[in-house]
Amino acid sequence: MRLGSRISQLRGERQLSQGELAHVLSVTRAALSHYENDRRQPDYETLKRIAQFFSVSMEYILEGRD
């Protein structure tokens, strides 16, 4: 599973829209869409916010393992 798929899966498990998660992460909905579709990579701070929000490790977000 790729980075974008993991972000999308985590978002779906919390039943959040892209707009809701984008607001929490302080990014645009379009930016989040790019991340989820692997067209762009989030910067380090955004990756950190994603991991913290979903209570998962950075390793999980990046590589799919804890």
Rank of each mutant, 00 (worst) to 15 (best):
T28P: 07
E63K: 05
L25P: 06
V27M: 02
L32V: 03
D38I: 00
R40Y: 15
S26R: 14
I50E: 04
L10I: 02
Y35P: 02
D43C: 04
S33H: 09
L3N: 01
D38T: 13
D66N: 10
A31I: 03
S55T: 11
S33W: 14
E59L: 14
R2E: 12
V56P: 10
T28A: 06
R14K: 15
G4S: 04
Q18Y: 03
S33P: 04
R40S: 14
E45D: 11
A30M: 13
V56K: 14
R39K: 13
K48C: 08
E63S: 06
E45M: 13
Q52Y: 09
V27S: 04
R49F: 01
S57P: 07
H23D: 13
V27T: 00
S55N: 14
Q52H: 11
I7L: 13
A51V: 13
E59W: 08
S17P: 05
G64R: 07
F53C: 07
F54C: 12
F54A: 12
M1Q: 08
G12V: 09
I50K: 06
L25W: 09
I50Y: 10
M58Q: 11
Y35H: 00
G12Q: 07
Q15Y: 08
R11Y: 12
Y60A: 07
P42Q: 00
L3F: 15
F54M: 01
D66Q: 13
L47P: 05
G19M: 12
D43W: 11
Y60E: 10
I61C: 05
R40Q: 14
G19W: 07
D38A: 07
I61F: 10
K48T: 09
T28L: 09
Q15L: 10
L25M: 12
Q15K: 14
N37Y: 06
V27E: 03
H23C: 11
Q9M: 12
Q41W: 08
E59V: 04
Q52P: 02
M58K: 11
L62Q: 06
